[in-house]
Simulated scan of single mutants.
Amino acid sequence: MEKPIILCVDDEKVILDSLKIQLKNAFQNNYSYETAESVDEAIEIIDELQGDEIPILVIVSDWLMPGTKGDEFLIKVHEKYPKIVKIMLTGQADDEAIDRAKQKANLYECIAKPWNCEKLINIIKSGLTNHG
């Protein structure tokens, strides 16, 4: 059986690589870790995994990305897959975008960049416990 997924979405590869390392160190082989460098790529991954019935438990998404902003992306995801825990990781999001994501995408948490690894892991653990 496939492991559940934690998906990270950011247009900066170095951030995705860093997130993946931190998640693997914290959660070991309990999950699979997917990354996407754009909202379009993320939606493709989500649809493919859901089609294969592989659960996505958490999405950690940047806010400021080319094309679609993180709050819009998470709202789209929430409309189709409301059970996924949604976390925004950003240095740029305005308060309106965060409020919109909380109201329309059930945003679990918004974390500022540069992030504290321990805080991020604890928020993900909390999200998995409370939404799992």
Rank of each mutant, 00 (worst) to 15 (best):
R100S: 02
V60Y: 12
K86Q: 04
Q28D: 06
D99Q: 13
I43T: 07
A101Q: 05
G51C: 06
E44N: 13
P82H: 00
N106H: 13
Y31V: 11
M65Y: 09
K76Q: 13
G67N: 06
G127H: 10
L74T: 08
M88H: 07
K69R: 14
G51T: 12
D62S: 03
K113G: 07
Y31P: 09
I43P: 00
Y81M: 02
G70R: 13
F27E: 01
N106V: 03
D71M: 12
I121V: 15
L74M: 15
N29T: 08
Q103K: 15
P114R: 06
G91V: 00
K69D: 05
C117Y: 10
N106L: 10
S38C: 06
V77G: 06
H78G: 10
W115Y: 15
S32T: 14
T90K: 11
P66D: 14
Y31A: 12
I84M: 08
K113A: 08
D40I: 10
Y108N: 01
T35D: 08
E109V: 00
T68C: 11
I98A: 00
Q28S: 04
L128A: 01
P82M: 05
D62Y: 06
D52V: 09
L89G: 00
W63Q: 12
D94P: 06
T90W: 13
Q28R: 14
K102R: 15
I98P: 00
I43M: 15
L49C: 08
A105I: 01
V58C: 09
E72K: 14
A101H: 01
L107D: 03
A101F: 04
K113S: 07
M88T: 05
L57A: 03
K83I: 06
S32P: 00
N30Y: 08
E118H: 10
H78K: 09
K113N: 07
V58H: 09
D47T: 11
I121W: 10
L57W: 11
I54C: 04
S38E: 01
L107I: 01
M88Q: 08
D52H: 15
E41Q: 13
Q50S: 12
L64H: 05
D40W: 00
K104T: 01
E53N: 15
P82T: 01
L89P: 06
N30T: 09
Q92F: 13
I98S: 01
N29E: 14
L107K: 07
V58D: 06
V77N: 02
I54V: 15
I124H: 08
P55K: 11
I87D: 10
N106G: 13
A42M: 03
I43Y: 02
T35Q: 11
W63K: 02
I121E: 08
A112W: 08
K104L: 14
E44K: 14
Y33A: 01
G67D: 05
A105V: 04
N25Q: 14
T68E: 13
D62T: 09
D40M: 09
A101L: 03
M65L: 10
E48L: 12
G51W: 09
A105L: 00
D40N: 13
V60E: 09
V39Y: 09
A36H: 02
G67E: 03
D62W: 06
A26H: 07
K113D: 06
S38Y: 04
S61K: 10
A112V: 04
L89C: 03
P55S: 10
E48V: 07
M88N: 06
S61L: 07
A105S: 07
V77Y: 05
C117H: 11
N122F: 09
T90E: 04
